[in-house]
């Protein structure tokens, strides 16, 4: 028997409309910009810090904007996402992505803490070993968050109709 596949909109508990806010698109834009500038800082800026300084400044400003936007947007997204996600794997991957983003931002904030203190008149900086550790965490959290974001955007959060049908029969 070839039962007709249900339309996506008929899937149980599926969100009425996909998440598409301007904020989320801006977050994606900033994330990509930060990844691009960050990779440049990590691998190429050392050969010309004249221009690297501009890129570093842009990276810091974009990073602050990204952190502010994400912090204001993520709560609502998690709440709606948890309601609409029907696949535990997707839910867990999303939590993992959130964890990576927290690690990424925390690393970034800790890295610019000495700058903030310097601008407020206090000279303090991390030990060289801690700096290395923070840079390592920031870089790898960025790589993993990039992969995680693509997975988050590409993977289904709803169950296939056939599965839903079988579940209904069961």
């Amino acid at each position: 028997m070839n039962a007709p596949l249900p339309l996506e909109s008929t899937v149980r508990n599926a969100p009425a409309t996909p998440t598409k806010s301007r904020t989320s698109l801006l977050i994606s834009l900033l994330f990509a910009g930060l990844l691009g500038t960050g990779l440049h800082l990590e691998w190429l800026a050392g050969r010309n810090w004249n221009s690297g300084e501009i890129v570093l400044l842009a990276h810091l400003l974009l990073g602050l904007m990204f952190a502010a936007l994400l912090a204001g947007w993520i709560g609502q997204h998690v709440r709606s996402g948890l309601r609409s996600s029907q696949r535990p794997a997707f839910t867990w991957l999303s939590w993992l992505l959130l964890g990576k983003c927290v690690l990424l931002l925390l690393g970034g904030v800790l890295m610019i803490l000495p700058v903030a203190l310097y601008l407020s008149g206090v000279i303090w900086f991390w030990s060289f070993e801690t700096t290395e550790l923070l840079a390592f965490l920031h870089l790898w959290a960025a790589y993993l968050a990039g992969i995680g974001l693509l997975a988050h955007l590409l993977l289904r959060h709803w169950r296939h109709a056939t599965l839903t049908h079988k579940e209904a029969q069961a």
């Binding site: 994606s28 834009l29 990509a32 910009g33 930060l34 842009a58």
Partner: peptide, 21 residues
């Protein structure tokens, strides 16, 4: 659809960073 919506912005962000560099 989320990917379709976000992909252009991700690409734009990457291109913008390359442009900035």
């Amino acid at each position: 659809s989320q990917f379709k919506n976000n992909a252009p912005w991700l690409i734009l962000g990457l291109l913008a960073s390359i442009g900035l560099i």
